[in-house]
Nucleic acid binder design. Structure first.
Lengths: 113, 113
DNA sequence: ACCTACATATTGGCTACCAATACATAGCAC
DNA sequence: GTGCTATGTATTGGTAGCCAATATGTAGGT
């Protein structure tokens, strides 16, 4: 699955990937891929601008790290980021519930009309 | 919830709304809204072009209906439409599973690494 | 006369993705 | 010593698929 159907849910994925501790962009991409059993393949052209945006929004804080001659930009959740992650999870549940009740009414029954 | 987060899942919603029998566009919009407990408010600018596209794709068949002086365009699923609906449901389950396992790993555990 | 509900359709705009590209370090294979 | 792959960050241009707004018309209520 490419990132396209992910539209609108990317921020939650990135925030969730950082919940257990700071990671750099490339590691976030592989973490998301692994956690989703290889299903979600985010692109750098999607992820890096998004991380930048989340930092500008105050949800992430970044710092440069050096490994030998290589440099990495490490992102960590801020307190606001943790709150935003909680909000994303709530929104996700509402979203899946809404779509699910239309797509699969038998699995998410409404009260009898 | 506006239709924007629905991006990429609209076709499934429309097909699902038609599963129990033919409906016209306006009725589809209200059906989706009711089934989702008022959460999903699709717009005519979203729905009518989508119905048109689904008909061109052979997933729907439309016919004009008259109620007094009013005219309605009634859409019904074709066989290909039913198959597409089944595919949309499969895709939806894969999608929610993938996002869910990243967003809420505790709720969708992976095998221990 | 005016408002709301019902009903279909089109226009223009924007957002958030994508693919492609660029650049650099590092290690392995041949 | 050349090339391939993995690691790592970043930007560019394109586009799909939503949105809001608008247009048009019937029907019924106040």
């Amino acid at each position: 699955m490419r990132g396209d159907p992910v539209r609108g849910h990317l921020d939650g994925l990135l925030l969730a990937a950082l919940e257990d501790g700071p990671l750099h962009g490339y590691a976030i991409i592989t973490a998301v891929q692994q956690r989703s059993a290889g299903t979600l393949e985010l692109r750098t052209g999607t992820v890096y601008p998004a991380l930048n945006r989340l930092e500008r929004a105050g949800l992430l804080r970044s710092s440069w790290e050096s490994v030998g001659e290589r440099r990495r930009r490490c992102y960590a959740l801020t307190d606001a980021g943790r709150r935003a992650l909680a909000d994303e999870r709530t929104a996700w549940r509402e979203f899946t519930s809404a779509i699910g009740s239309v797509l699969d009414p038998a699995r998410a029954p409404r009260p009898a009309t």
